[in-house]
Structure formats: structure tokens, C-alpha cells
Design a protein around this nucleic acid. Structure first.
Length: 498
RNA sequence: GAGAGCGUAGCUCAGCCGGUAGAGCAACUGACUUUUAAUCAGUAGGUCAUGGGUUCGAAUCCCAUCGCUCUCACCA
């Protein structure tokens, strides 16, 4: 007898054992990966339906559930079965579970996906359970599950093997469920506000709409070098010219060939919208309504924690012109400074190292970034940006060095960027030529003037407010995620050879 | 791109002033059978990221490479 046991004894290597069990299962029951199985209820629905079932109570209600085995106690008599919605305990006992199903139990490993049919009851200890009458193998797994108590903790593995991260880390699962909810929340908000969603090209033969390094690619048949878009802005404005709609938006990926960090992924999601006959102040209101609504949908309130900070999305947000913010922080009054040279001197005197040829506006923006940005924890709109760093925004009346632009900051991060969109064709052309020259001076040889865009603006774009929202960062805030990689399912990673 | 740190069993982690590698979970063999990270006994499992070097001897010290993390730079 003991010899026979030795012959059938399984290897102690987890992966090998599973392969052996798979073989045994195939011999015994045939199809281990059946195509058809229909559950009658999800685990969450089950919990809700039997919420009031008292402990130590049996029902005659037969249900069929399906899910992955997460843990097993008393030699498989108790198993926790998880589906995407939640968990349910499976109880198998010789008094209720037929021989065939109990035999299957010994070939079930943690992580396997099974179906279970049986009567619902609540145990003496209060655990909602199913008395297994039939157990069906739906998917035999070949790899063991990560450790059940700590889950997958290794950060590298959590990003590389996201399926294991979500399988074992509840907060990670919740975060990606919330990401989905936030995205649909943005869509719903925009549509309810009368915006029409469109899709514009991601492959551009001329890139623009932002200052960033693009990814380069090539179209074979067209024999055309192309770029993954760095921004949808120019196409969305062309859409606005078309009269298709007065309120247009797009939610999709932008690609920027820049550094990666906890706040930067090479591909990231932006929501951009353009609203005809509105200006940047209308857009500020829109941002506040949108943020408040998203916080409500995720947290049920506009107040929430990010790390050790309390964030409030209850509007109205603080609005502060950039020159005022810089003046408050440093005492430097940029509005009183007349020339680039004076601006550089003032910056230098205050201890800031600005470029030799920095303009008045560049000095102002630089000091803002150095001194003010990190202090903007509660959501704030910083308005009145310098014109020389804002090629698509209209001038502030009476102050031609500033434009009707704002950026929304929260937790010291830039989340939103918006303007009263420039629609004067001659000025737009002049500013883009100026930007192009600057890009070429920086060595960006491939940067070209977007004639098709300028041609469309010549046709007349209605006055409009425009906005871009960094959706990943907004999701980070709302889900308390310290890294952008925590809110992107499969973040960019080097290939690992091992 | 620069600096700092990390990489030990399938997973979570010890070991690191050099002396042949350890625990818990998972797995295997049993016991037990209304459990909740079930419990108990036993077994097996490691090219200590990779490649060099120093040394009688390296997971441990040195160098290089790969991967990851953090900070900074570019950017949103």
C-alpha cells in the first residue's frame, strides 16, 4: 500500500504538481477547460441577497457560482471562492457533496477556477456559504498564487505581473475599478454638459499642440515618417472650425518621449475639450464642477485624503494670477518690471539662476515653478500666464505680456491647463512661427509648421475656451496613488531578460 | 541623462563586520474534520539577479552588466 502511494505521490514542486494534476484531471474528467458554464449569481449579489440570513441557517435555494479558489481550510472542506465582485465560502462534506466532486477536491489547487452548485446557508460562525452538491473544474492553473496573507508586495512584480497584483491586492483592484469609474464619470459629465466626443488622429505627420519630444514611426505604404501625437489640440480646434459641434471633447492617449517618473508615463491619458463662445473663466467653473462631481462619485463627498493631506474638491477653487503669486512668495513685482534684462536681474538678485537669454515671461514662470508650485496643495487655478510661453492663448486686455490662461494645480501637480483660445489667424501664425524658430534653435530639426491647422484658423474658429486635463494624475489624487504606475494597468517597462 | 538604494525558495522576509543558506505561507505525505491567515507531525524546495575579481574560503568585500525603486533634470 505504501509502495503504491509512493508511485502516485506527486512532486513537491508547485508547477510540476499542477501539470501532473492537470494530466490526471484530463484522464478522469476529460475537458478541464470547458467552454460552457453558466453561473446563476455573482458573489456580491449573493452577499447582498442573503445579507439578513441568520447564522446557522440553511436555505433550500440552489445557486451556481464560479470563481477562483483563494484559500482552503480543513483539507478543502472549506474553500474561499473569489469572483471579480467578491467572495463566497464553499463547504464540501461527505453528507452533502457526492463522491465525484469530493474526488475533484484533492486535485484542486489554490488559484484554480471552479464552478460550484449548491444550497445557500450561513454557518454557525456567520460565514455565508454554499453546500457544494456539484463542483466543476473550469480552469486548471499551472502556476501557484502569490502568498495569501501579504499578497504580491514586490513593486517590480506588481507592475510586470499586474494580473497577480490585482488578483491578490484588494487596494490595487479597487483602484483600477475606480479608474474606470472616473473615466466614465468624466464622459458622463461632459456629455451631460452638451459636449460631443470625437476621435482625432494619433498618428501625425506634423506634431504640435505642446512642447515635447515625440515618438517617431513610419508608414510603409505612404512612405511617410509619422509621429505619435503629443497633443490632440490642433485637430480638436479644426473640429471646432467645422461647426460639427460647439462643444467638443476627446479622451485618449498622448505620447511624449520624455523622462519617466512617478508622475510621468510615456503614454498618458488626456481629456481635452473646446467650448465655443466660452472663455477661460467659464472653463474654470467647468473644472470645479467636474472635479467636485468626480470626488462625489468616488468618495461620496468632496473631501478626501491623499497620503497625509486632506484635499477638498469643494469649489470654488482659489484663483490667483501668476504675477501676484510670485510677488507674494518673493516680493518681486513682475508687473513693474519692463524689460527682459530687468527681469533676469531681479531673478538673479533673488537667487534664481535663469537662462542668459530668458525672457520676462520665462523668468516669471521659472520663479513660479521654483517658489509657488510646491505650495499649491489644495486645488487652485493659477491665471494670467506669460504670453511668451503660451502660443495658443489670447492676451489679457490691457496687459499684452499676459494671456487668458490658467493651470489647475493640486498636491503641487499640474492637473489642468486651459485658455481663452487664440483665434486671430494672423497672430496665431506669427506665434507659431516664433515657436518653430525657438524649437529649431533648441535643435528640434523635425518640428514643422502645421499649415493645415493655420489654414483652418484662417477659415475662422469661433472664440472658445479650451482645456486639457491630465487624467492619470487626477485619478492618482482621487485614488490616493503615490505613483502614476499605480493607476496605469500596464505601465511602460524595460524588457527583462532572465 | 545624473545621484542614492535595492535584487536571497513560487510568494513574504531573515541572514550581510567573509567560514558551505533559514523561517512563515504555498507545495508534497499523513493526522484531524464546521473552519476564518484552520490546527498538528513529517518531507521536499535555492547558480543568494548575471559576469568577473580579491581570498584558503564570497549571499556577505570590490568592479562591470541587467532590472527595479526614490530624488533631480526634460515633461503633463
Amino acid at each position: 500500500m505504501s509502495e503504491q502511494k509512493n508511485e502516485t505521490a506527486l512532486s513537491s514542486d508547485a508547477a510540476e504538481v499542477r501539470a501532473q494534476k492537470l494530466k490526471l484531471l484530463r484522464e478522469k474528467i476529460g475537458d478541464v477547460y470547458p467552454a460552457h458554464f453558466h453561473r446563476t449569481i455573482t458573489n456580491a449579489e449573493l452577499s447582498a441577497k442573503y445579507e439578513d440570513l441568520a447564522p446557522d441557517t440553511e436555505t433550500q435555494d440552489i445557486v451556481t457560482v464560479a470563481g477562483r479558489v483563494y484559500s482552503s481550510r480543513n483539507s478543502g472542506m472549506f474553500m474561499d471562492l473569489h469572483d471579480a465582485s467578491g467572495k463566497i465560502q464553499i463547504f464540501s462534506h461527505k453528507d452533502i457533496t457526492p463522491e465525484a466532486s469530493r474526488e475533484l477536491l484533492s486535485l484542486i489547487d489554490l488559484g484554480d477556477i471552479i464552478g460550484v452548485t449548491g444550497a445557500v446557508r450561513r454557518t454557525k460562525r456567520g460565514e455565508l456559504s454554499i453546500n457544494a452538491r456539484e463542483i466543476t473544474m473550469l480552469t486548471k492553473t499551472l502556476l501557484p498564487m502569490p502568498e495569501k496573507y501579504h499578497g504580491l508586495a514586490d513593486i517590480e512584480l506588481r507592475y510586470r505581473k499586474r494580473h497577480l497584483d490585482i488578483l491578490t491586492n484588494e487596494e490595487s483592484k479597487l483602484r483600477f475599478q475606480q479608474r474606470s469609474k472616473i473615466l466614465s464619470g468624466i464622459r458622463r459629465f461632459m456629455e451631460n454638459d452638451g459636449f460631443m466626443e470625437v476621435e482625432t488622429p494619433m498618428l501625425h505627420s506634423v506634431y504640435g499642440g505642446a512642447t515635447a519630444e515625440p515618438f517617431k514611426t513610419h508608414h510603409n505604404t505612404l512612405k511617410l515618417d509619422m509621429y505619435l501625437r503629443i497633443a490632440p489640440e490642433l485637430y480638436l480646434k479644426r473640429t471646432l472650425v467645422s461647426g460639427l459641434t460647439d462643444k467638443v471633447f476627446e479622451i485618449n492617449r498622448n505620447f511624449r518621449n520624455e523622462g519617466v517618473s512617478t508622475r510621468h508615463n510615456p503614454e498618458f491619458t488626456m481629456m481635452e475639450c473646446y467650448w465655443a463662445y466660452a472663455d477661460y473663466e467659464d472653463i474654470m467653473d467647468l473644472v470645479e464642477r467636474l472635479f467636485a462631481e468626480l470626488a462625489m462619485s468616488i468618495h461620496g463627498t468632496t473631501e478626501f485624503a491623499f497620503g497625509d493631506k486632506q484635499i477638498s474638491f469643494a469649489g470654488p477653487f482659489k484663483r490667483v494670477p501668476m504675477p501676484d503669486a510670485v510677488k507674494d512668495a518673493t516680493g518681486i513685482d513682475f508687473l513693474a518690471i519692463k524689460t527682459d534684462e530687468e527681469a533676469r536681474a531681479a531673478a538673479k538678485a533673488a537667487g534664481f539662476e535663469v537662462e542668459k537669454d530668458a525672457t520676462w515671461g520665462e523668468c516669471l514662470a521659472f520663479i513660479f515653478e521654483e517658489k509657488v508650485e510646491s505650495t499649491l496643495i489644495q486645488p487652485s487655478h493659477v491665471t494670467h500666464f506669460p504670453k511668451d510661453i503660451s502660443p495658443f492663448a489670447k492676451e489679457v486686455p490691457g496687459e499684452p505680456r499676459l494671456v487668458e490662461r490658467f493651470e489647475t494645480y493640486c498636491n503641487a501637480w499640474e492637473i489642468g491647463n486651459a485658455f481663452s483660445e487664440l483665434n486671430d489667424p494672423e497672430e496665431q501664425r506669427a506665434r507659431m512661427i516664433d515657436q518653430l524658430q525657438q524649437a529649431h534653435a533648441r535643435g528640434e530639426k523635425e518640428k514643422q509648421l502645421d499649415d493645415e491647422f493655420l489654414d483652418a484658423i484662417d477659415q475662422g474658429m469661433p472664440p472658445a475656451g479650451g482645456l486639457g486635463i491630465g487624467v492619470d494624475r487626477l485619478i492618482m489624487l482621487l485614488t490616493n496613488a503615490p505613483s502614476i504606475r499605480d493607476v496605469i494597468l500596464f505601465p511602460a517597462r524595460r524588457h527583462k531578460n532572465d
